[in-house]
């Protein structure tokens, strides 16, 4: 009896949060979905139902949205791979019990504490594509160090410019990836490596056949987390390259056509597509993580 009353009180304690999240997450998603099926253009809401028209318009003859898709794909691949490679490499380097490990670890992660809005400006300067006497930023540094082969036009590179925008993103999140890998490496018992060494396995083979397979869950988690972040990339684009059509991303597109262009229907359609792609990545991951926890 007492217990039931307590449980009711417990439920009442979470109720405000349930209502808040219910409205601000699920209610608003529903509302945005409704807008995405509407003809709303201009200052005043117009919920006239137009079916999938806004979605179809995005996929048919919309050059900007095609650029968005291409850019998101290139950016995601470069960003996720860059973070995984750099993160795993630095985790392996730090897993040897070196002197100064905690210093290196803290230093590799600190970019995560700073906003893209702050660092984006610096990166814009560092990745300046100007050539000749106006050369600056990293190109100038490469020139001074005799590393001329590294000089390039960064985000101004035709077609692949967006790949260079992944550099600041890798800079910010590779430390986070490292921390995930480091936690994974620490969970592998030393006996496993010792036993393989006794059996005469080379360090490379131990890595290839024992460590790497055991790190697969970490790699998968990191891919999901980083992948969904890259879909949402917004601040980085605004701060580093501004609103350039060739370097457009869906989030920037949505923001501009909705709040500057007042094309609410199309803006809502883009954001619902973004949500669907995020959900495809995140929902299986959520269920998998939570089920594992119960076991």
């Amino acid at each position: 009896m007492q217990d039931r009353k307590e449980k009711r009180l417990a439920f009442l304690m979470v109720l405000p949060s349930i209502i808040a999240v219910g409205i601000f997450v699920y209610g608003f998603i529903g509302w945005t979905t409704r807008v995405s099926f509407s003809a709303w253009r201009g200052m005043n809401p117009d919920y006239t139902f137009v079916g999938f028209k806004n979605y179809i318009n995005l996929f048919v003859n919309n050059l900007r949205f095609q650029i968005d898709i291409k850019n998101t794909l290139i950016f995601t691949v470069v960003f996720v791979l860059g973070c995984l490679i750099l993160g795993l490499a630095s985790a392996l380097l730090l897993d040897q019990g070196l002197k100064g490990e905690s210093f290196f670890r803290s230093l590799f992660i600190f970019p995560m504490a700073i906003s893209y809005i702050v660092t984006g400006v610096v990166w814009r300067w560092l990745m300046n594509p100007a050539a000749g006497s106006r050369m600056s930023g990293l190109n100038l540094l490469f020139d001074k160090l005799g590393l001329d082969f590294l000089i390039n036009s960064w985000t101004s590179t035709p077609t692949w410019g967006i790949a260079f925008l992944a550099i600041p993103a890798i800079w910010q999140l590779s430390g986070y990836t490292m921390a995930m890998y480091l936690a994974g490496l620490r969970a592998i018992p030393d006996e496993l490596r010792e036993a393989a060494r006794v059996d005469g396995a080379s360090e490379f083979n131990i890595f290839r056949y024992i460590i790497l397979p055991l790190l697969r869950p970490v790699t998968l988690s990191a891919m999901v987390i980083l992948g969904h972040m890259s879909l949402k990339t917004f601040d980085l684009v605004i701060a580093t390259v501004g609103k350039q059509l060739v370097l457009d991303m869906p989030s920037v597109h949505m923001w501009q056509i909705t709040f500057d262009g007042l094309q609410y229907g199309s803006g809502a359609a883009i954001s619902i597509l973004l949500l669907i792609f995020t959900a495809v990545l995140i929902i299986p991951y959520l269920f998998f993580s939570l089920r594992k926890e119960v076991k």
Partner: peptide, 21 residues
């Protein structure tokens, strides 16, 4: 179930709530 539903809120692209917000 409630916990899972709350948790999902942390991963959504906020663009999908901006207009109603």
């Amino acid at each position: 179930v409630i916990f899972t539903l709350i948790l999902f809120g942390m991963f959504i692209p906020y663009q999908s709530v901006l207009i109603p917000l």
